[in-house]
Design a protein around this nucleic acid. Structure first.
Lengths: 234, 234
DNA sequence: CGGATGGTTGACTGGTTTCAAGAGAAGTGG
DNA sequence: CCACTTCTCTTGAAACCAGTCAACCATCCG
């Protein structure tokens, strides 16, 4: 953990590819995307590499192209609290657009990862020039806001089992099938506001009830949707 | 609870006053604000009146002008889980801009309240015509997102005391002084994911430690910032 | 003044955390 | 390809914190 991040020099093709794969740019015309690619700088991070760390000033928008990035706090007990996991298409740093906020968390690549970055000045200029971009960003922020608020209501539930069930419902889109967890179980536990031990026990409980089945280390097979909904809140 | 909401007919002066008091419109020119006022419809709600309820389709942006609105879920145990409390200038329904989302919560006036409403079609038209408006909205959403994510990390903490301390730190901006709680203590308890009883006990604990002092029913006097930070997480 | 609501306090129960140890998987190097 | 290390995950037992239920007090309102 902690190897420096490698920045590459400009090669428009790479940037364009990155920009084109990002949802918030998808609806734009090709020439508009090219103009975005021009102000984009790709960043490469190996597994364990840090994109940014606490105390750093946030003046950049990061968009994950390939790979995965994990955002986490470091509690005073030295334990990590996972805020969020970013998969391709997700982005961080939108606050950088408006204020010189200071990062309070670590952004770490969990595998080999490619990101596009846009500086605040470049992005505000883009927003002036491309009104549809503002709408895309608005839409993306609204979605994130919804999931964050849903997450908050989930976490407000005192009992661990419904909290887990609620999470599994959103993960699986309420359909029977096998799903891969977006993070390790200890990270998931922190994300759900419980200890790894509790998560393990609750998963087992759901398994013995025939609601789910754990496959290997990072996969979960949903068997009984209705039963899971019955356990979940609301 | 549950009295119908009274809608008023158009009287541009009222609408303009409402629009002018809302932060996201503040930076616009007067004529732009007038054009917004034209598509705005004011809504009045008495204490206990519902702005919307679950199952209703969200196609409107609501902006609180005066008064206060409380958003809450109804758990399957019949208990209310407070999502958020809206004070003047705050808004809800931004998701309505992009999808036909269905409301899953109640929006209830906690006192006599005036709101401005804008329909989705009117708002998208406005966003096309007034690019700065999109930026204002973006900025507001980014701020809300930050607080929602902070809230989520707070709630992930298993112990009630640091959770409360973390909340108090954000409420008080880490400065000694007297502050008014934005909601009732039972609502605050639900917002912080604990019972009113626990909140009462934890507040008392902080008081006996000389960190805070409760003044009346809705005010809290912060005495020792450092001690509060020591109790809070991170 | 009386009722309703919001808030506090107390004793008890129960679920989660903690601490500690063990099982399993994955990755490394011989 | 197999031992070995290492890390993740699981399992068990005990302490503890917060939830629950119930009663009481305070405040606000008509």
């Amino acid at each position: 953990m902690g190897e420096p991040v490698a920045a590459h020099h400009h090669s428009l093709a790479r940037e364009l590819e990155c920009v084109s794969q990002v949802p918030i740019f998808q609806e734009l015309a090709t020439d508009q995307r090219t103009s975005i690619a021009k102000v984009t700088r790709p960043i490469h991070a190996e597994k364990g590499g840090l994109i940014y760390r606490p105390e750093e000033v946030s003046q950049t928008l990061y968009i994950v192209n390939t790979g995965q990035v994990r955002l986490y706090h470091l509690g005073d007990d030295g334990r990590e609290r996972v805020l969020r996991v970013l998969n391709p298409g997700d982005f961080i740093g939108e606050i950088a657009l408006f204020t010189d906020e200071i990062h309070q968390d670590y952004a770490e690549a969990t595998k080999t990862t490619e990101l596009c970055t846009i500086s605040r000045t470049a992005l505000t200029a883009l927003l002036d020039r491309l009104p549809p971009l503002a709408l895309s960003l608005l839409s993306a922020l609204a979605v994130r806001l919804r999931t964050a608020e849903r997450q908050a209501t989930l976490l407000a539930i005192p009992d661990a089992l419904p909290r887990l069930a609620g999470y599994l419902l959103t993960l699986t889109d309420q359909r029977v099938g096998t799903y891969t967890l977006p993070m390790s179980k200890q990270d998931l536990a922190a994300y759900l506001g419980m200890t790894p031990e509790s998560l393990s026990r609750k998963l087992k409980q759901l398994a013995t009830q025939g609601i789910i089945e754990t496959v290997g280390r990072r996969q979960i097979k949903l068997l009984d949707v209705a039963a899971l909904q019955a356990v979940a809140p609301q």
